[in-house]
Computed example of a mutant assay.
Amino acid sequence: MMIRPASETGERGELAQAKADGRASMLAAAVGKEVRSLRRMLNMPATALAAVAGISNGMLSKIESGTATPSFSTLLALAEALKVPVARLFVGHDERADYSLVRSGKGITIRRRGSKAGITYQLIGHVLSGERYVEPYLVTIDETATDSPGFQHTGIEFMYVLRGSMLYRYAGSLFEIYEGDSLVFDAKAVHGHERILQGPVTYLSVVFNLRA
């Protein structure tokens, strides 16, 4: 039987403790970030949340900054005040990784409701993570396409033009968009291409949303 030196055993114990402390710090940071995010979504002042949860303003500040690890009873009180299940507070610490790999040319061609001939939408991935989902599309508009009827949907949309140029409508504004340009907007307002300036136009469209 080999007996390890006390110094080596001690070093391993310190390493294990350091790893445990690191995981605890990551958990505290994730919980704090989620508490702050939920509070802001409810437009609730920090003082109001602290009062409802029965904790001090200073403690809430430490929890949201990730510098304090709340007890389970405090987590329950915070979850109740924020009107969410307590498990929701740990969503940022979920280690599951959802990914989507789509090979070149293997995206799924779909037809969006209201779209016209000459416009192709290719879904090139789909990621669900916690309460969020992301849908990237490769959109191609050829010269024969008529103007878009305009789309409205939930979420935030990011566009990046890969080739061509077009006149693009968003709410009451019109933009000339060229290769290399990008646009980010709240997709609840009416949006869509108005006219092709130089076609065909290909752009990447990524929609970020919350799961209902």
Rank of each mutant, 00 (worst) to 15 (best):
77 A>W: 13
101 L>Y: 12
97 A>C: 11
77 A>T: 09
144 T>Y: 03
82 L>S: 05
151 F>S: 03
117 A>K: 07
143 E>W: 08
7 S>A: 15
189 A>M: 07
44 M>G: 10
156 I>Y: 02
212 A>G: 11
8 E>S: 09
25 S>Q: 15
150 G>A: 08
116 K>I: 07
73 S>D: 13
119 I>G: 00
84 V>G: 00
63 I>M: 12
180 G>E: 04
91 V>Q: 13
131 E>W: 12
202 T>H: 01
157 E>K: 09
105 G>N: 04
92 G>N: 15
142 D>N: 09
51 A>E: 15
49 L>F: 09
15 L>D: 08
63 I>A: 12
57 N>V: 05
64 E>T: 02
34 E>V: 13
108 I>K: 14
193 H>P: 03
154 T>K: 11
91 V>H: 07
86 V>H: 04
185 F>K: 03
85 P>F: 12
142 D>V: 02
96 R>K: 11
48 A>D: 14
75 L>Q: 05
158 F>H: 05
64 E>K: 01
191 H>W: 05
80 E>D: 13
110 I>E: 14
155 G>N: 00
78 L>E: 02
150 G>Y: 09
73 S>C: 09
133 Y>E: 15
58 G>W: 04
192 G>W: 02
107 G>E: 08
9 T>F: 13
115 S>P: 12
187 A>K: 07
4 R>S: 06
210 L>G: 05
64 E>M: 04
165 S>G: 14
84 V>W: 10
31 V>M: 13
56 S>M: 14
66 G>A: 07
146 T>I: 13
64 E>D: 02
114 G>W: 10
64 E>C: 03
162 L>Y: 04
179 E>H: 03
142 D>G: 01
7 S>G: 03
192 G>T: 02
145 A>K: 01
85 P>V: 13
147 D>S: 12
144 T>P: 01
209 N>W: 08
50 A>M: 11
87 A>Y: 13
134 V>S: 08
208 F>A: 10
58 G>C: 04
182 S>R: 07
69 T>Y: 15
47 T>V: 13
124 I>H: 01
199 G>L: 03
91 V>R: 15
5 P>T: 08
135 E>W: 02
44 M>F: 06
162 L>V: 10
7 S>C: 12
148 S>A: 08
148 S>K: 00
45 P>D: 10
176 E>C: 00
201 V>C: 01
161 V>K: 00
53 A>Q: 03
87 A>H: 06
61 S>F: 07
87 A>D: 11
205 S>V: 05
84 V>C: 08
131 E>S: 14
128 L>A: 13
91 V>W: 07
10 G>C: 10
139 V>Q: 02
126 H>S: 09
140 T>P: 03
121 Y>S: 03
74 T>E: 09
50 A>I: 10
195 R>C: 02
149 P>M: 08
124 I>V: 15
83 K>N: 14
61 S>D: 05
87 A>K: 11
41 M>Y: 10
201 V>S: 00
173 S>W: 12
184 V>H: 04
199 G>M: 02
29 A>C: 08
131 E>N: 14
131 E>K: 12
22 G>F: 15
